[in-house]
Design a protein around this nucleic acid. Sequence first.
DNA 1: GTTATCGGATACATTCACGTATCGGATACG
DNA 2: CGTATCCGATACGTGAATGTATCCGATAAC
Lengths: 210, 210
Amino acid sequence: MTKRRPQTLARLLDAALEAFAANGFGGTRIEDVCERAGYTRGAFYSNFASKEELFFALFDRHAARVLERFEKQAAALGPGAVTLADLAAGLAEFDDDERTWYLVTTEFTLSAIRDPQAARRLAEHDARLRGEAMRLLAERLARAGLRLRPGVELEPLVRMLIAIREGALAQSYVEPEALPPGTLERQFLPALLGAVTEVAAEPVAEPEHG
Amino acid sequence: MTKRRPQTLARLLDAALEAFAANGFGGTRIEDVCERAGYTRGAFYSNFASKEELFFALFDRHAARVLERFEKQAAALGPGAVTLADLAAGLAEFDDDERTWYLVTTEFTLSAIRDPQAARRLAEHDARLRGEAMRLLAERLARAGLRLRPGVELEPLVRMLIAIREGALAQSYVEPEALPPGTLERQFLPALLGAVTEVAAEPVAEPEHG
DNA sequence: GTTATCGGATACATTCACGTATCGGATACG
DNA sequence: CGTATCCGATACGTGAATGTATCCGATAAC
């Protein structure tokens, strides 16, 4: 019987997201999650075997959502002319619940560094996400009339962009007033992207002074 | 009486570093720390009031050490000619216990995002560290015969470099074989630094195609 | 509409980590 | 060398979170 089941499961996961974001994995009791979801611990143990399993399930759902959202954004691309500043601006945008997700995924990353099983899970998701990002970036670059310079690979570049997003976000969330989210991206990504690309039509070798 | 005191305190902090890195803050019992240090819980409660206080103390000692190490590195700068690749290579180096520290500081960062008190502490430390990094970077750029382009500030640039280090490190620790630490730095920092600087002697405006 | 099964609530036992209060040994001081 | 004080060990009580076992209501099948 499954009319209630998916709903309670979803509400438990929603509650887990809130609770983990608020107090972290270790700081969250199973009963916290149940209270937020409006259930008792009975409902929890009927759906999950342990808090770890809940954490994994939460990550899976979250990963699916992120991917889904990203694909939609990619599909809904404006057809206008694209500049490097536009590209950077796109990478400087952050959703409202990005913070909640950041807290949970970062903690999951930590657990992945310690636990190979979690690491595989995370790596798999990241690979899919990078794949999407690579396609999107390639398309936007092409639309901007640019191409990667010889020796610059798409995947490492996407890894770099993700690293920047994550690293900058950490600083922004610790000091929101000193560094609003997106500041560093807008400030430096045009230069970085400009340095690793060249005009597709007339590939001019820019002078390097390093 | 203080012959033993500092030693036990140091051993407790060492043990805490190990334990927190291995199992995280929430996953570490006070007794874990004491066992690793070779004491009982009596020693702990004689030195700390709670696990949180231990965590804070650990962070303070760690912050001091990082700063100290960084200053020494800065002082021990080789006098040789400096290129952008050298600069990038310096930012691509990672100590062996960097991983341990990464795990602990990242968790502290998470707690700082949630707790204003921890945030202040972290922000203060980061500011000091950035100050050092700014001086060091300025010196090395000068030595390389470069200067920042108009509109590029030193502090945001250092923030950016730190963001890159942290973000790249996260990926490297999750997939050490796919992305050895330092890879992204070596690959992209020369381009980035080249794009935000210009030759000090003959300030030439490089063509931008974005 | 009746029945069987499923899902969540309730109640209980257990384990475990915590904090405190006290004791014994070691260290500095006279 | 004796003594007072400090520090870490030991022992205990307590609260809390966990997991399980059972019960009851709801839902689907017939």
